[in-house]
Amino acid sequence: MPGRTTAAAEGEVVLFLIGMRINHFRAPHHWLPVFLAMPRMLRELSRDPDSGLLGHQLLAGSPRTYYVVQYWESAEKLLAYASAPDRLHRKAWATINRFERKSRQHVGIWHETYVVPAGNYESIYGDMPPYGLAAATGVLPVERRGRTARDRLAHGAAAQEG
């Protein structure tokens, strides 16, 4: 996409980061189930437009560390998915807890959740296909939100006040 664009996000943004670290490569039977669980959950969420997941990216931090950046409609929808007994997350979490007792620290897992109010985020993409927040919420010409980061943050704050 040529030129400068920004994300079309409106209002609050929920950013969820989740990942794993392979502590011992020689024990794939401990870390492989964790590694394979996330793509299955992402497929389940992607098939359900009411789930609240707006978009995601799978990333590698190093040969040992893998994580997913997820954008959600709301913290409530994220928490509802995490606790739903009929969804894959509950089953995966139960399996991970069971394996963790036996795994002797072969795999590490982590997650972080950020609820970002309107007016506290901005974005710019130069000659990029939709990526990150823009891939999750849509793309606008940057001029619609402001030419500078300060302008784009002020746009979000004004939207929150209005």
Rank of each mutant, 00 (worst) to 15 (best):
R87I: 08
A84T: 15
V139Y: 07
V69W: 01
G138M: 07
E76G: 13
G138R: 08
L53G: 12
H89T: 02
L54E: 02
R98E: 15
R90H: 03
A27G: 14
A75Q: 15
M38H: 01
D48M: 04
L32V: 09
N23H: 10
A154S: 14
A7G: 01
I18Y: 10
A136E: 00
H56D: 04
L42C: 05
I96K: 03
S74I: 01
L88I: 12
G52Q: 00
T65F: 07
L140C: 08
G3P: 07
R26A: 08
A94L: 12
A37D: 15
L45D: 10
P85D: 08
P49W: 05
R144F: 12
I22M: 03
L133T: 06
V13N: 05
G3K: 02
G52H: 01
I96R: 03
R101M: 08
T95W: 03
H111R: 12
A75L: 12
L78W: 02
P49Y: 09
D127A: 12
S46F: 13
R147F: 00
S62K: 10
G126A: 15
A159C: 09
K77N: 05
S83C: 06
Q57E: 15
M41A: 15
A75N: 04
F16Y: 15
L79F: 13
A157P: 00
D127E: 11
